[in-house]
Simulated scan of single mutants.
Amino acid sequence: MDRRELASLLEQCGSLEHPAHSADYRLAACTVRLHCSAPELFQEIHDVLSPTFGGERAAELPAGGWRFAVMVSDAWDFERFAQAAEGETVIAQSTGYRTLRGKVLEDATVRYVANTESGNLIAVDNVRKLAAAIGRKPDSSLILDASATIRNILRSELERRGGFVLHSSSLRVKDKGVAIIGEKGAGKSTLLMEWLMNAGAACVGPDRTFFWKDRQGIRFSGWPSEIRLKAETVAEYPGLQAFVHQDPALWNGEKYEIPLQRLSSWHVPVAREVPLHVVIFKQYVPDMPDFQVEPLHRREDMIRELKSSLYTPEDPNYPNWIGVPNQSEEKAEDTLLHTPGLRFIKLTGGGSRERLLNLAQELVFDEAYEQRTYYP
């Protein structure tokens, strides 16, 4: 397909307007308005995005907001596009992740990316703040491409305003916002599950969390994803085990994957835009029979713990693969470390689940710990 045909497709997407198949998704002050050419597409995408980004449409699109269209079109031709593109491009590649490949064309302010895996087209115009996902079928691949691109646009806009993403499990327990940070296998999901199952907490982000500064301090919201749990973890909770066994599709061969939109049927609430109060750096040490608690006050100690949790451009979920400008994540350190009253605690060891939850509750709510604040 030549650039004129591609531009025509994008214009068709830009003219889509159907209130019944439309919603606004927000992250802090960032907004993307979704328009779909078919109701079934809209509902599927909305189910993915709404737990973390809402979906209440305003009368007018806020200033600086994006328009995003999802359209099924016979005019889209992957093979013709591939012939016009200059060879195959590795869009994103990282150790431990799959490599995403695609065909890329750029025309003035627009970047056209044909996802080789799905065969769909993603078009992004950064000047007009117009983007689209176009496929020949209203299938799951189009829903995935559209949802991922909307998520990445919101992330890019948040970063442009000084926000950032951390590899963390996050929740709201009573009136406290808690972020649990740690490397893979550190026990983030274990602590999250204990809070969700036994302490009435609301889930915010199972694995990654958006953070940003406002007048009151730091707020955070989740990333549309799944809670991924090993079979032995699920077996610890009979109610959860009964829930996942009702749907064999939740098992991916290695772990159970529970989408955030399914949590309501599991009687677990999902919260968004929560004030941050406590950051727990979790480290699992199997040969330690109990847990060691270390409040962190020194800047160098906190920076060391944060380093392993910052997401970098090598992550294939990073928005630069679709041409959305990315922002430096170095602001994460300064934002977190220069927020008066925010507490940082390192929790190391390998005791029982009951002991873990009781200790975590004490760290968050005990008045003695509340007085241990950090002021740079």
Rank of each mutant, 00 (worst) to 15 (best):
E5R: 14
L9Y: 04
G14N: 14
L16I: 13
H18N: 15
A20C: 05
A20F: 06
A20Y: 04
A23W: 12
R33Q: 12
H35W: 10
C36E: 04
C36F: 03
V48Q: 07
T52G: 01
G55T: 06
G55W: 06
V72A: 04
D74I: 00
A75I: 01
W76A: 08
W76L: 04
E79M: 02
F81T: 03
Q83H: 10
A85W: 00
I91S: 03
T109H: 13
Y112V: 06
A114W: 03
E117Y: 14
N120D: 12
I134K: 04
P138E: 06
A146P: 11
I150M: 12
I153F: 01
L158R: 00
G162F: 02
V178G: 01
A179D: 01
I181K: 05
S189C: 11
T190V: 15
E194D: 08
A199N: 07
A202P: 05
F210S: 02
F211R: 02
S225C: 07
I227C: 04
R228N: 10
L229M: 14
H245A: 15
W251H: 03
L263F: 13
S265N: 15
V270S: 03
P275Q: 03
K282Y: 00
Y284M: 09
Y284P: 06
D301H: 08
L306K: 03
S308R: 04
S309M: 01
D315F: 06
P316Q: 09
W321F: 14
N326R: 06
T335D: 11
L336W: 08
H338M: 13
H338D: 15
L342N: 11
I345N: 12
L347E: 14
L347T: 11
T348C: 06
E354P: 01
L356H: 13
Y369T: 06
Y375S: 15
